[in-house]
Design a protein around this nucleic acid. Structure first.
Lengths: 337, 337
DNA sequence: CCTTCGTTTTACAACGTTGTAAGTGCGCTC
DNA sequence: GAGCGCACTTACAACGTTGTAAAACGAAGG
């Protein structure tokens, strides 16, 4: 700043009242004479005053800031290649606006020694944490609970612990995919799962297999992917080798589904005529894919907003019991199956 | 927090020294006896002390935080659908880590009355701003300069002003696309531009047209798009109507290029056999597209990191003259042209 | 006219940190 | 052995805000 920022003191001097009165006007507290309010407001205008955040949080013990932590995602730089994290971010940012709360973005690598995030919160740099943790053995949720930091998780924690979270019924999503493929008359149904050390992948897969079994398909050829396009393509190749006459694939996310479609097309297998493909998430690649993907919608933005909302309410009145909100998936039928 | 956080005072009592000494140990200042250092460190360990950020910034006038502002992008929720912003975010976050500086994510709508962002910075909530402003008439850069907030822009400002920025030679990018298409023997070359109220679009287009003119093509059929897939598809349709025998399209970003490829394919026009397509950015859709896109690479992550670096250096020693760093584009030849 | 009671305002003490001026020893020099 | 740096440590005053207890001020009641 060229000139030093005006303080409460300055405003008080100009308005001819005490600091406390100005403070009360700024914070909209009652018990201040309308005339004086007017005077003070003018003084604020005139001085160009705006309250100092640090001083305020020093006494209120609130920062107006929450940490948005993306945990367990490798080194970092490529995280936002996956549309999922972008959607989470969008949902959170969108909901937080208007509540005058701002998200601080943090990438936490899985190295347990790195205490960056917990430190950040223990320093009182943020009032709470929104944690998108990909691996169930991530130590971060437990640490946050231990530190008594108000937190909300995206996806249930790996071990039961007293913490709020938002999640989706991934099993139901898997079931829907199975039901749809069976109902459309497919017989040689296969699947590309997500990484099996991720709860959501396990659930989607379990739901899918259960439903398949119930439909009379006890064995489902499965190739494990890593939620990336490359891994999806590789998995598709493996499936084609194991099961050359497959006529359907359920991929655990859209990125892999899209890659699978490409591989099938390269093999001269038309989608959906020869092979039906169902994705998961309903994110941008589902629409960009040709044919457009039939997929299981995960309302990521809504879930992220809900996550933010839970945290805000927890900050509003502390000490509430942990809560969870589970969202339902939805089958979106497009061209690929 | 279950128990109240320990303060410097507490550590000092345990270690049997004064607050100032503890402070010096924490901040690694010289002039403290090794033995005492040891004692203090133990006391810190024992009490689980971690310094209070608010108190610290109150006196240092530093927050260890910068604002990452995405400005001019409509309402907000869909911003992260465009891979561009995700890449910027990734680049910034990645560079800031390890400097113990954290980014606060802010979406600024174009409504000039909303002073949220400037207020945030004037409150001293962040030490500086990284601004990704899409429209040249965005009032935010000027306001930041006026407020004396250390700031760095992604892309040059609409009007000249004393502010640092990072940019790319978009004209050169446009030229590269033209050169490549002409060199590969195309004759009926068309283009889908970006929104013409965006400087980058203007530059890419100008560079492209200049080069085309130099190659002896004074008129280039042009359809304006909006950097989204839908607008790209619509633009492609218009071009096909105006110029049914086109044999090449240069699209101002990959999202539109991908959509264009889809439209061409639907019209039975094979890519690149019948029509060559060149994109711009080299982002995820370029690789996901079939055929994979020949495109002009914009090193977004590097540019974002550079932007962060400029800001950090400005915070390090204030009062430096504004600087700019211009990156060169690069032609990436894949299958589509 | 003196209490008593609201309402509004003020003065003052936090909040937890850093930086600076003022100590406190301690080993030297002369 | 008194004086003097030097290395280290300690009080103490900021920093800008909020919350609270006390004070001022009328108005109403006795």
């Amino acid at each position: 700043m060229s000139k030093v920022a005006p303080t409460l003191e300055d405003v008080a001097r100009v308005a001819g009242v005490s600091r406390a009165t100005v403070s009360r006007v700024v914070n909209g507290t009652r018990n201040v004479d309308p005339d004086i309010q007017e005077t003070v407001r003018n003084a604020i205008e005139q001085t160009g005053y705006s309250p100092n955040r640090a001083a305020r949080s020093l006494v209120t013990r609130r920062t107006g800031t929450v940490a948005l932590v993306i945990s367990g995602a490798g080194g970092g730089s490529d995280v936002f290649t996956d549309p999922f994290f972008g959607r989470v971010t969008a949902g959170v940012v969108d909901h937080l606006r208007g509540h005058s709360v701002h998200p601080v973005l943090m990438l936490a690598d899985s190295d347990p020694a790195r205490t960056e995030v917990v430190d950040f919160l223990r320093q009182g740099s943020a009032d709470g944490a929104l944690l998108v943790s990909t691996h169930p053995d991530d130590p971060l949720p437990a640490r946050l609970v231990d530190a008594g930091v108000p937190s909300v998780l995206y996806a249930r924690p790996g071990r039961p612990m007293p913490i709020s979270y938002v999640d989706m019924d991934h099993r139901a999503g898997g079931r829907m995919a199975a039901d749809h493929l069976v109902a459309s008359g497919r017989y040689n149904i296969t699947t590309i799962s997500g990484p099996m050390d991720v709860l959501a992948s396990q659930d989607r897969h379990a739901g899918f297999r259960d439903a398949m079994a119930r439909h009379g398909f006890p064995y489902v050829p499965t190739a494990e992917g890593g939620f990336t396009a490359e891994s999806g393509a590789a998995a598709m190749h493996r499936l084609l080798t194991e099961c050359p006459d497959l006529d359907a694939v359920f991929a655990a996310n859209d990125l892999m589904a899209q890659a699978a479609v490409d591989v099938l097309l390269e093999h001269g297998l038309r989608v959906p005529d020869a092979v039906a493909v169902v994705g998961f998430d309903d994110s941008a690649p589902a629409l960009a894919c040709r044919p457009q993907l039939t997929t299981i919608r995960q309302p990521v933005e809504k879930m992220a907003a809900q996550m933010a909302d839970l945290l805000l309410s927890d900050l509003e009145k502390p000490g509430q019991r942990p809560r969870s909100v589970i969202f339902e998936p939805e089958l979106v039928v497009r061209a690929s199956a």
